[in-house]
Amino acid sequence: MKLFLRTVAAAALLVGGPAAAQTYPEKPIRLIVPFNQGGLTSNSARVMVKAIEDNDLLPVPIIVSYIPGAAGTIGARQVKDSEPDGHSALIWHVAANGAQAMGNVDFGPDDFKLVAGTDRQCYMLVVREESEYQTLPELLEAAKANPDTIISADNLGGANHIASVLAEDSLPGARFRHVQFGGTAKTYPALLGGHAEVNATSTSSLSSTSTNGLRVLGYMGPERHPDYPDVPTFHELGYDTEFCMYSWWFMPKDTPEDRVATFRDAMVKAMETDYLREQSVVHGVEHVILTGDELKSAMETEKAKISAIGARLRGE
């Protein structure tokens, strides 16, 4: 019934739109998820939309569309080229910087209006339980002594690859052999089966496998993760390495600032609900929403890291 009423309301708004041209939002907002259903990004989008709608934080429904493919660039391009009236939005992640840094597309975060950053999750370096490497320094020293022999299970060009490259960079001279396996569904069995030795994984992927059969060597966050109190951070071990990923929320570049603010306020209020708090725990992500200067600096940090790596990988 509620769904029905909402549909009627949406239809009424659509019809009555032109009369109240100055109001925003005047019609349903289309949120594009540039990935397949089922992944973390699609879930982040869905739970945010549910929290906004259940608490009536925006007067219109938000319609989630999946436009997957090519690391999210296909769906992102659609939002980039949409009418900048605040009725189209995009959720993307580190690939926003990655795709540009790898030279696959000629646009990046600068070609959008950045609304917010949510769901922080930092990366961890894991090996299987039977691995001879007990600690991070042992692993990195071995990768330095015999460079290009220890296999890292990666999705080349993707976030776990970037994290793995940053991890080896913590010790100058250390080099893994980066091999294409894919996402967690492929890298986790590859580690267990001994096809690869090491893998960089996000806390959200790790929580789905419950570290079964794996040993976590180091955490790439600023301080220890509450769920893994025994795992040292890279900083503690003397390596100046940090890599965290966010869900970035974008709108087309020329969207008026007041409309962006309306949408952002709804997101901020949604984040305060118990529902989203619970969901963050289940998904294994940190319950944060970045706005303002914090948001800018987080994006700048990510861009700097990724473009440096992109340049190096393309040069190789």
Binding site: N43, R46, S207, Q279, V282, H283
Partner: peptide, 8 residues
């Protein structure tokens, strides 16, 4: 996940 259950 959306029903608050962590598979695994």
């Amino acid at each position: 996940l959306m029903h608050n259950l962590q598979p695994g």
